[in-house]
Design a protein around this nucleic acid. Structure first.
Lengths: 125, 125
DNA sequence: CGCTTAATGATAACGTATTTTCGATATGGC
DNA sequence: GCCATATCGAAAATACGTTATCATTAAGCG
């Protein structure tokens, strides 16, 4: 049975409030505002459960720890801020990917990552 | 002092022969054709040295172990074969990335990964 | 409210990639 | 060829993200 606990409610709220891909460490840090002594094990357990039930989807970012985001979004890719380390969504994707595929290869999927400064970090200095 | 050993020569040869990004495990496996009892520690030490001297560059592939490839290539991105697990280079990149950047964000860099079947694996079955 | 048991938190254990240790070996200058 | 020492290989140690353990807590049904 799945119980509706304060910990899981807090974790779901974090995803709905922040609306960007989060790592377990980010989830822990943010959700502790609601549940001060939340444990990392509970974060992993909840994320696993929420992923299995299709509420979250895993996101692989090159060279970084696994992140998760809300499922059901339109096709999109990710922007990584080099200053604050946060990952943001952006809509759309390049239209001319097919012509890049090497001769004889079959493209089934694609990923695009942009790197730079987010709007917040650009202001700072 | 940097010595020119049979192990380092074999590792350099592997990169020149295969011409694609390699993980330490792939390097070890391939270079053992030349140096049968090559150790993984030597692979890591050599890769570190070759990276520091700019002969190799590290490549982060989402969800996979660190890989390295020869430096000095023209701008390119990577294709990952889901069947054999090998990574291949492909030239060129999408032209319309700039319009995807969120309002207020600064794009400094980009990465594109294509996934599918390489020419070899497509033939197999 | 009382009870069953799923869920929690702290911590140990784990898996995997990478680095260090150390005695043995081989490179390269003389 | 000889020697100093950088490099090697094997294995232990480390780093770090994730999972398992277990005693305790609390969700939620009757």
């Amino acid at each position: 049975m799945q119980r509706d606990t304060v910990q899981r409610r807090a974790i779901r709220k974090v995803f709905k409030d922040l609306g960007r891909p989060l790592s377990p460490a980010e989830i822990l840090q943010t959700a502790r505002a609601q549940v001060p002594n939340l444990g990392i094990a509970t974060v992993y357990r909840s994320v696993k459960g929420l992923t299995e039930e299709g509420w979250l989807v895993p996101i692989d970012v090159p060279g970084e720890a696994q992140r998760y985001e809300l499922s059901g979004k339109d096709h999109h890719h990710h922007f990584s801020c080099r200053q604050c380390g946060r990952i943001f969504d952006f809509d759309g994707c390049p239209k001319d990917l097919a012509k890049l595929v090497p001769q004889g290869f079959l493209m089934e999927d694609h990923e695009v990552f942009l790197y730079g400064r987010c709007a917040d970090c650009r202001k700072d200095r």
